[in-house]
Design a protein around this nucleic acid. Structure first.
Lengths: 359, 359
DNA sequence: GTTAGCACTCTGAATGTTTGAGTGCTAAAG
DNA sequence: CTTTAGCACTCAAACATTCAGAGTGCTAAC
């Protein structure tokens, strides 16, 4: 198993790290390739341009920097960005007004998790000037609060599920044999008696597990209930709110039409983005900051120039989803990391409160 | 009032019309400005290039064509396209396989109008290679079939409305004073007794209109009901499904980054697009084909290069919404018109059937 | 180990040249 | 009077050339 020292990876010495930091920082703010003169002019390192040149050549050999052509300045490689976010950048403090803006947003009354997260993605887009992302809580973490059935037509049944995150979901199920009105009443009662508090995702599994406890008439009800529950697409309702993707066009890298099309590809790639940020966050120890994805790291074809900064939000200290921002590879990571982390904290707090006082 | 002859507007003679047709047709297929030589080469008009040149100069004076610069070929102006779609193009027949593909899509069982229209926009995008549009039926045409209330929390009430188009909608309302369980039961019954068949859009208006009929205890219920209904955002739930907008990037006109950004603007402009195609379809007699919008006709700022071909769909011969395709100004109108019209017919049929057998 | 200096490289902007498509006009033919 | 052929003219796009500026790598001196 790979093990990382948090502060002192051995392969770069102090000066190299300073210069790598300078190059990445400069490139992030100006979007221009960085030359040796620029470095000495903008950062006071106490060495001459020639020295910087030598170090930069070394960094290029090591794979941290890259030249677009001989005689242009250098730009960071993915590896260079990686080193920067992992060891060099110090997460920037948010200003008071930024903090207040975020706090204020979360003062408003919301009482279901989905709208909270939609608002969050909106907020992130606004404040970061990148695309804001927010995944709805994983189905597995939602507990059934209440189930209601409603006959829409003789064979068509509406199933309403209220979860502990305040979300009311509506599904439609088809019965082979029509249900009479008092069938529905008893079925509803049966479902609520037996499935209160069960994870929404595994309603039918929960019921199946208890199946042998039921006898005779209750058995019949259980079978009917299963028939209904199996029909519902409960497992795949996590969705991704994404807002403000068009802000990416402001960035110079998307002047190029080919790059710009990547942004449009986002609309179709939402599923893959979800699974990617999730798996990245779960992959422990591969990087100090594994919830930053640089250039989507070649994992989604056609999104090579896109980066994501994500953070998990939690309910009662258990991760239930991710929020984040998405932008060009050249992003102000140090600032955005602060924003995302801070926002995630608030989402966690509000959701925990929402679940807390359950009756 | 302006009156149009369907077949023979007077301002162009036969030859001019042939040449206008040739230019528009050629430009639509190739995306290249059309010169006099091209016209004689590709269309057998029996005249020489010089003659064509003279006619084209006339058409330019009349405002139908336009030169991007002296000594380039001509391209149609909006007015030119308008004349083309109104009088020159003959709507193309769909091939058997195209017709079958559409028919097959509508064989699948759907039982609520919203999913039907989502599928429709998907189908249109697929078959037209443009963006597919489908507006959900206007709230005004949906009649209340059933209302259910569900207490989510002491002060939070879920309101479910099932309409005659099979759509089940969920709203949340907040009560000042908590309702007891039998309050809810009687309120539900009251609502259903008095509002069955009322247009969803005007539920509270309908109830208000009948208010003086109610006395004493029923009066109290009516007041409570009104309190709830007024809270629901019933009037503005028409939405636009749009799919496949990224296909527009295949078109050469969107190579240019500035134009390409228009496509992204679509995401924000959905409301304006709805009202635009609706008002266009309603404006009677201004054009023979008033459900074709060319270059959005300068009406939505920032979407000058976008055109829309729309068609209304009907329930029992009454228009309740629009479907269509959206693409660059230079679009194969004759083919797409056929597709859109044909599809609209099917949507109408399925919806009418859905409403038909009401009980 | 660090720095100054210098020759060298490469891009991007500016400028000029050429080519080809297309036009407008005129004069001749129908 | 309409149509056509011919010709001079225009313009954009493609290509070539030049030039300045930024940056590098290398060498020799500190």
């Amino acid at each position: 198993m790979v093990f990382f020292m948090k502060q002192h990876p051995q392969d770069l010495n102090e000066r190299e790290r300073q210069i790598l930091h300078a190059v990445v920082h400069s490139y992030i703010t100006t979007a221009e390739p960085v030359g040796s003169r620029t470095v000495v002019k903008r950062f006071d390192l106490g060495v001459s341009a020639a020295t910087v040149r030598n170090v930069m050549a070394d960094l290029e050999d090591l794979g941290y920097l890259q030249q677009l052509h001989t005689s242009s300045g250098r730009v960071p490689t993915d590896q260079g960005y990686r080193y920067y976010v992992d060891y060099l950048m110090h997460v920037q403090q948010l200003t008071l007004s930024e903090r207040q803006r975020i706090e204020k947003e979360f003062m408003a009354r919301v009482d279901d998790a989905d709208s909270l997260l939609r608002q969050t993605s909106h907020l992130l887009a606004l404040i970061s000037h990148q695309a804001g992302l927010a995944e709805t809580p994983a189905e597995g973490s939602a507990l059934t609060q209440r189930i209601e059935l409603l006959s829409l037509a003789p064979e068509r049944l509406a199933v309403l599920i209220l979860d502990n995150l305040g979300r009311l979901r509506t599904y439609t199920a088809y019965m082979e044999t029509p249900l009479r009105s008092d069938d529905i009443t008893s079925l509803t009662r049966f479902l609520n008696d037996n499935l209160h508090g069960a994870p929404v995702e595994r309603l039918s599994a929960s019921l199946e597990a208890r199946l042998r406890e039921f006898m005779d008439d209750r058995r019949r009800l259980a079978d009917q209930a299963l028939q209904v529950l199996r029909m519902l697409p409960l497992e795949r309702t996590t969705q991704l709110y994404m807002e403000g993707a068009n802000q990416l066009f402001e960035q110079p890298e998307f002047r190029d039409i080919a790059k710009a099309r990547q942004v449009f590809g986002l609309l179709d790639a939402q599923d893959r983005i979800i699974s990617l940020i999730r798996s990245a966050a779960e992959a422990e120890g591969t990087h100090p900051r594994n919830s930053i994805l640089i250039g989507i790291e070649g994992k989604i074809q056609g999104l090579e120039d896109i980066s994501v900064i994500a953070a998990p939000y939690k309910v009662n200290d258990e991760t239930v989803g991710m929020i984040g921002v998405l932008g060009p590879r050249r992003m102000p990571y140090s600032r955005l990391t602060a924003i995302v982390d801070y926002t995630a904290k608030f989402v966690s707090r509000v959701l925990t409160q929402m679940v807390g006082p359950k009756k």
